[in-house]
Design a protein around this nucleic acid. Structure first.
Length: 937
RNA sequence: GGGCGGUUAGCUCAGUUGGUUAGAGUAUCACAUUGACAUUGUGAGGGUCACAGGUUCGAGUCCUGUACCGCCCACCA
């Protein structure tokens, strides 16, 4: 086994192992009535996506669960796929076109879509390859794409069903418009960001003055002066005494040939600005409401691209921000500009291109959300669906209970086209379809359709039911990407086609739905999680998943979100190349506390790398010293644990102790805790103590080597613990555990007959270790712990006198307690070996006249005898300090034990422990004082 | 304006029903080194658990308030 390299080299191993898993279809999950299902649907990454640390964390969590459940005997399915990401993907392809000097309109819709599909074929699977690098054990045969033919049928089906239930409608409302992407956005797609804006105070001249005490203008405050051009009223609060006489007056908005009224409405906040507000119903949601209420005109002043339109008069074709500047200048000239104030406020931005979003009045399709939200609220309230950590429940419910209708139409080309047709003949004739040229000359005509009476269907209708015309026009818009992703947990199983074909697909949906856990980031709760829950109840009648695990956001070391524009990205693939996928996974998981954001820097991956290397070398050591023909799991003879030596019984007990804690942590999605339990066990128990104790038994050349009849047991126990530990670690570090396990498994040692029947073997398909309570022995653990503590105490003493640890010394342990003496008899050989002692003397009294330094540990006193080396003065000083500390501690404990309330109210075991400590401390104190006296002589 | 999270060692963070002397990783220092591993080993130093009150026999942990940092939501003209 000397050919095993003494450093773990992930590069050579990972690709080979991943191929082995795939070649043997180990990720595949099938309906199996004998097993319970466990299913996770992947949050489908965008086809434009490249793997970032957020993905790495997200998918590592999922892979841990999937691999764990697979080992635990579930039919464990991880459903993979990608999202077509309408706006994002269209933007990417448009940028590509721009390099060729083209716009999408130059190609036309069909050709453009061909280009997008081509792009998808070329680059769209990048992220899938990257997930494989990470070790994701998805059932790749099932990979889905939200634009797949089958999936698109599901989207259409859903649209039609909702339309038929009157849960989808078309209407002319103020929506969020991105002038750069030139499409409507949902509220969630237009997040608000705080900006340092300005508040402009502007004078609106009053047409006539009835009473002399009114000045000849009213001042309004606005952050968007360009919208003056669309003003159709000025509003004040009816309770506002300042403006009592203004109500009903006519004013002339600056720069506009128009007369508008001053109206009164409670909505106006008297404390803000001047208490008078300009009303632009076509460009502000509040003003829109006022406009409806007071029957105002709606004047749209803007083109799709954010330039001003013909309603803007001399400002036509100016960009909205240019126009703002120009207008302020002109107002200044006309003495209608009062003042300007800095004003912090939050402004909606496009979530794709970060352009400032414009509230824009337009015809769009909406989903009525209140009825859909009802069962989705119920399900979370009665814990049918649980959030981990719990606090997200409140966030979810708060959003759900205040849900607003969802704008689902997008004015882009890449996506599911809305399955709606209009009649061009009777529509145009009745003036309900208006043709508008929105772009520069030569561009495709776009249609503004005003008539909300569409023909909704699965396929294009032959003719118009009203006028029999075949001249039909399909709605130009496509659906919001999230209108397809919200169907992910069931559309990926072929819904609704499976309803028509009562095939295997139906069974699969029945078997795997509701899925088990959804693992995702908080940013996506509203976009996706909430909507999936609504869709699940609406279309399947059941929740889409039982648990929602929300992990934190990955940030850079300064707490900033990682993003390309900030240049603070740590590329997971580079980390994989440098440290290995296992190191990436383990590091990420260990430093991510449940639900807490992760602050990442590159050196944090050394944790995982070092750990992988440690495990590799511990295994290497084991493989060098194990007789695999003896210890192979299939040949393992039954052994009685009573016949084992203490270290063997100890490590077995420790393993089964941590297994319980590990299971509990995993059940509660405490991944970091689980990882730390394994790290601690492997490094600081298995390697630091057990392997060290096994050396003199296994390694002939080891200094303490002794032939013992126990060596066979040692081998078996070492093998067993290592093999089971590898299984426990496998979900976290799949590659290295498989590689070592295969070496350890050494199938060549299997008898010929067994080899053939064994078939494909992989740690992936091994059972998760079972709890064995009888192996946990707290008494064994405490006996071994005493030895460990004494060894540490001796090493500490050596360090105090600056002796190398390898220096053999004489030690006396003074102990009166008979039970402890017995334990020491059992463990003295381990203590002598690991603490490197020439001689270990166990006595009941401190030998008179020896010069030594000492350490007092519980009831035992450890003396290190070093003729001539001892610095008596220093030792006296140290003892005096110790005596002071013990005395103080004793004092507080004794007073606590005198406190009646403490004795009455504290649990018995706490009181016992305190009493015990008082006795121990008293003995310590006595011993220390005695030594002090002796030394002083 | 509302909600949520954070504040613990120089740094990054654990700490699950309140109970011995508050832990890890990392950095620092000392010592070690030829057979598992320098991606190592053995030790050491380093903390008023943000602050102020309160509940309790007992508070890093529970309650109230304050400060600072961060995030989310809201029709902040």
């Amino acid at each position: 086994m000397n050919e095993i390299p003494n450093h773990y080299e992930p590069k050579e191993i990972e690709d080979r192992i991943y191929k082995y898993w795939q070649d043997n279809q180990l990720f595949s999950a099938k309906v199996n009535p004998a097993k319970k299902p466990f299913c996770i649907v992947i949050p489908p990454p965008n086809v434009t996506g490249i793997l970032h640390m957020g993905h790495a964390l997200n998918n590592t969590c999922q892979d841990i669960l999937i691999r764990l459940k697979r080992m635990q005997g579930f039919a464990s399915l991880w459903m993979p796929g990608t999202d077509h990401a309408g706006i994002a993907t269209q933007n990417v392809v448009e940028r590509q076109l721009a390099k060729e000097g083209l716009k999408r309109q130059d190609l036309g819709r069909e050709k453009f879509l061909e280009r997008v599909w081509l792009w998808r074929e070329q680059y769209g699977l990048t992220i899938i390859h990257q997930l494989k690098k990470l070790g994701a054990s998805c059932d790749w045969a099932r990979e889905r794409f939200t634009m797949d033919g089958e999936y698109s049928e599901a989207v259409k089906e859903v649209f039609i069903r909702l339309y038929q239930k009157d849960l989808i409608y078309r209407g002319n409302y103020i929506i969020n418009w991105c002038p750069r992407c030139q499409t409507a956005l949902s509220d969630e797609e237009a997040p608000h960001r705080e900006v340092e804006g300005k508040l402009y105070y502007i004078r609106y001249p009053i047409r006539e003055t009835r009473k002399g005490n009114i000045p000849d203008f009213i001042v309004v405050a606005t952050t968007r002066p360009e919208t003056i051009l669309g003003d159709t009223a000025v509003a004040v609060n009816p309770k506002d005494k300042r403006y009592k006489n203004f109500i009903g007056q006519t004013v002339i908005p600056p720069l506009v040939e128009r007369e508008i009224k001053i109206i009164a409405d409670d909505m106006v906040d008297m404390k803000f600005g001047t208490g008078a507000v300009k009303v632009t119903p076509a460009h502000d949601p509040n003003d829109y409401a006022l406009g409806k209420k007071h029957n105002l005109d709606f004047i749209n002043i803007m083109n799709y691209d954010g330039t001003l339109n013909f309603s803007a008069g001399e400002y036509q074709n100016m960009d909205r921000f240019e126009a703002r500047e120009a207008i302020i200048e002109d107002l200044n000239e006309r003495k209608l500009f009062e003042k300007i104030e800095p004003h912090k406020h939050s402004v909606a931005h496009c979530y794709r291109c970060h352009t400032v979003v414009e509230p824009y009045l337009s015809w769009q399709w909406f989903v009525r959300m209140k009825p859909l939200a009802k069962p989705a609220i119920e399900a979370v309230k009665n814990s049918k669906i649980k959030f981990y950590p719990k606090r997200w429940t409140k966030v979810y419910l708060n959003w759900m209970e205040n849900i607003r209708d969802w704008c689902i139409s997008r004015q882009i080309w890449w996506g599911h086209r809305i399955p709606v047709w209009y009649c061009r003949d009777c529509g145009l004739k009745s003036g309900k379809i208006v043709e508008v040229k929105s772009g520069p000359p030569g561009y495709t005509t776009s249609y503004t359709i005003l008539d909300p009476k569409p023909l909704v269907g699965y396929i294009r209708p032959d003719k118009c039911p009203d006028c029999n015309s075949a001249n039909l026009l399909q709605d130009e818009d496509v659906l919001d990407t999230w209108f397809s992703s919200w169907l992910w947990p069931f559309a990926t199983f072929g819904w609704p086609i499976q309803e028509l074909k009562a095939t295997q697909r139906t069974q699969e949906l029945k078997y795997f739905y509701p899925t088990s856990v959804l693992v995702t980031a908080p940013e996506i709760i509203f976009f996706w999680v909430a909507r999936m829950i609504m869709a699940g109840f609406e279309f399947i009648g059941k929740e889409p998943f039982k648990d929602v695990y929300i992990h934190g956001t990955v940030r850079d070391i300064e707490g900033k979100k990682m993003s390309k524009s900030l240049g603070n990205i740590i590329d997971p693939l580079e980390i994989i190349a440098q440290y290995g996928a296992d190191a990436l996974r383990f590091s990420l998981i260990s430093i991510t506390s449940t639900g807490q954001d992760v602050y990442l820097s590159e050196e944090k991956f050394e944790l995982g790398r070092n750990f992988a290397n440690k495990l590799w070398n511990a295994s290497r050591f084991s493989l060098m010293n194990l007789d695999l023909s003896l210890v192979n799991i299939d040949l393992c003879v039954f052994f009685e644990k009573e016949k084992l030596e203490l270290p063997e019984r100890w490590i077995l007990s420790r393993f089964y102790s941590i297994l319980g804690r590990l299971n509990k942590a995993l059940d509660n999605f405490r991944f970091n805790q689980a990882a730390n339990i394994l790290y601690e066990f492997i490094w600081h128990e298995f390697c630091d103590w057990y392997l060290e104790l096994a050396k003199p038994i296994l390694v002939t050349r080891s200094p303490g080597y002794q032939v013992t009849s126990q060596s066979k047991n040692t081998q078996i126990v070492l093998y067993k613990v290592l093999e089971k530990t590898l299984r426990c670690l496998h979900p976290f570090m799949p590659f290295i555990t498989e590689e070592i396990w295969q070496k350890l498994r050494a199938t060549s040692y299997l008898p010929a007959g067994r080899q053939a029947s064994a078939g494909v073997t992989s740690i992936m398909t091994q059972p998760w270790p079972h709890i064995q309570k009888q192996m946990v022995d707290k008494d064994v653990e405490s006996r071994m712990q005493l030895a460990i503590d004494l060894i540490t105490a001796i090493r500490n003493l050596k360090s105090q006198v600056k002796l190398p640890q390898s220096q053999n010394v004489k030690v006396t342990i003074v102990v009166k307690d008979k039970k402890t003496v017995r334990i020491l008899d059992e463990t003295s050989k381990y203590i002598s070996y690991l603490a490197k002692l020439d001689n270990l003397d166990i006595r009941s009294e401190r030998p008179a006249g020896i010069k030594s330094i000492s350490s007092i540990f519980k009831k035992t006193q450890v003396l290190l005898e070093l003729e001539g080396v001892i610095d008596i003065e220093k030792e006296i000083e140290k003892l005096a300090r110790e005596i002071g500390a013990i005395t103080a501690d004793l004092k507080s404990k004794e007073s606590r034990l005198k406190n009646k309330e403490f004795l009455q109210k504290a649990p018995q075991e706490v009181i016992e422990r305190e009493k015990e400590l008082v006795t121990v401390n008293k003995e310590k104190l006595a011993a220390s004082s005695k030594i002090l006296d002796e030394l002083k002589k």
